[in-house]
């Protein structure tokens, strides 16, 4: 089914980039729906949100913010490396990004399991006894960070594929749009976290 017609050898990097941005908009609005829910409930139960946020470990939150910011920087730098035809550095930088992402996930795992261990998870007996706003806060906490973690996993998959493509040369200084778009996706994950972090951890 592959067209071998040379007329159809259509390549449009700018178009691909616009497409990626539009996809990012859909992701922003996907989380936007959640931020709207957050805003409504916080407006109604700001006291409860305040007390509930004390339960979250701001240190872990800050650590994860630092990790994600660093990983964003390394992805961005890997583009510079590829453009400078420095394939090796690019691969190292992408590798660092993936390791940082993994560390983020490990942190998240411990954070969640700690909370679950304390008995604070959706459907638990303890949750049912909480104030209404606290209950909503933790529901939002699990849903938002859960969906965000899912995006981290997707991003890691994409970046892994790109890493291999950099290695075999199919992503290079001339054909770099895939890496750029993968990078955009990764920055999006970062972007969402930049808002999640203060809203969940810093409103104490």
């Amino acid at each position: 089914m592959a067209h071998s017609n040379p007329l159809l050898e259509h390549r449009d990097d700018e178009g691909a980039k616009i497409g990626m941005w539009i996809f990012i908009f859909t992701e922003i609005l996907l989380f936007g729906g959640l931020f709207l829910v957050y805003a409504v409930f916080r407006n109604q139960y700001s006291e409860d949100f305040h007390t509930a946020a004390f339960e979250l470990n701001a240190f872990v939150g800050t650590l994860n913010t630092v990790i994600l910011l660093c990983s964003s920087a390394t992805v961005a730098m890997s583009i510079t490396a590829v453009l400078k035809k420095d394939r090796k550095t690019a691969m190292i930088l992408l590798g660092i990004t993936l390791v940082l992402a993994l560390v983020f996930m490990v942190n998240k795992y411990f954070e969640w399991s700690h909370k679950i261990h304390e008995g604070i998870y959706p459907g638990s007996e303890l949750m049912a006894d909480l104030e209404r706003g606290e209950l909503l806060f933790f529901s939002l906490y699990y849903f938002m960070t859960g969906l965000h973690a899912l995006h981290i996993l997707i991003g890691m998959t994409i970046l892994t594929v790109i890493l291999f493509k950099v290695r075999n040369g199919s992503v290079n200084d001339d054909k770099i749009v895939l890496l750029e778009n993968g990078g955009l996706y990764w920055h999006l994950v970062d972007l969402i976290w930049i808002f999640l972090f203060p809203l969940l951890y810093l409103i104490t």
Binding site: V75, A76, E180, L184, H187, L191, I194, F197, P198
Partner: peptide, 28 residues
């Protein structure tokens, strides 16, 4: 109540920086 405002303001500045430099918007 200003705490949240400040936190969101700082977050917005950060997002602006990420968009401009990391996401390359400055040159788009």
């Amino acid at each position: 109540p200003l705490t949240v405002t400040v936190a969101l303001l700082v977050a917005s500045v950060k997002v602006f920086i990420v968009l401009t430099y990391f996401m390359h918007l400055k040159y788009d």
